[in-house]
Amino acid sequence: MLKQKALVDVLGQVNTNGVDGSWLFNKEGLLLAFVGTQSKTVAANVSSALLASVWTALERRANDLTESILVLEDGVIAFTLIARSMLLAVRSNKKTEVGMVRAKLHSLAAYLEQPILSISHDQL
């Protein structure tokens, strides 16, 4: 069983050295957990819905898509597919190296993969 408090604690561990937000949400954009600073212009649940929409559009062009990195004006958002049905995203400021963001995303995804897979199998 994956507990909400434990999930928030794990997501919060990557929020260092320029990384200021991490999300876990499903492919439909339903936010399950968010840790980080809330943007004054866009709420975390809106961001997850937008990222899920971007993922769907990218996935139509590449069937085997597993990761995407958006380099934006004010920072970087990297997101990846975990457990076949969930998306994990990490946001950083513009001073953070893309490689560091990607490394944090991969380590967090590897850590969460098995617990999320076990939950999804329990629900089948």
Rank of each mutant, 00 (worst) to 15 (best):
K3R: 10
K5C: 00
K5P: 04
D9K: 13
D9S: 13
D9T: 09
L11Q: 06
G12N: 14
N15C: 14
N15E: 07
T16E: 15
N17Q: 13
G18E: 13
G18K: 05
V19S: 03
V19N: 11
S22A: 15
S22T: 14
W23M: 13
W23Y: 15
L24Y: 04
F25G: 10
F25Y: 14
N26W: 03
G29Q: 09
L31Y: 10
F34T: 08
G36H: 03
T37E: 15
T37H: 11
Q38I: 03
S39Q: 12
K40Q: 12
K40L: 10
N45W: 11
N45G: 00
S47I: 08
S48Y: 08
S48V: 07
A49C: 07
L50N: 14
L50I: 10
L51Q: 04
L51R: 07
L51I: 14
S53T: 14
V54P: 06
E59M: 05
E59K: 15
E59S: 13
R61A: 01
R61Q: 13
R61L: 05
A62W: 02
D64R: 10
D64T: 11
D64K: 09
T66S: 11
T66A: 01
T66M: 01
S68Q: 12
S68G: 01
L70E: 12
L70N: 08
L70S: 08
V71N: 13
E73P: 00
E73K: 01
E73C: 00
D74R: 07
G75R: 03
I77Y: 10
T80N: 11
L81S: 12
L81I: 08
I82L: 15
I82K: 09
I82M: 12
A83N: 09
A83S: 15
R91K: 15
S92Y: 06
N93S: 01
N93D: 15
K94M: 02
K94S: 08
K94H: 07
K95F: 05
E97Q: 12
V98A: 05
G99L: 04
V101K: 09
R102P: 02
A103I: 06
L105N: 03
L105E: 12
L108A: 05
L108H: 03
A109E: 11
A109I: 03
A109C: 09
A109H: 06
Y111I: 07
L112I: 07
Q114W: 02
Q114L: 07
Q114P: 04
I116D: 01
S118I: 06
H121W: 06
H121L: 11
H121G: 00
D122L: 12
D122F: 08
D122T: 04
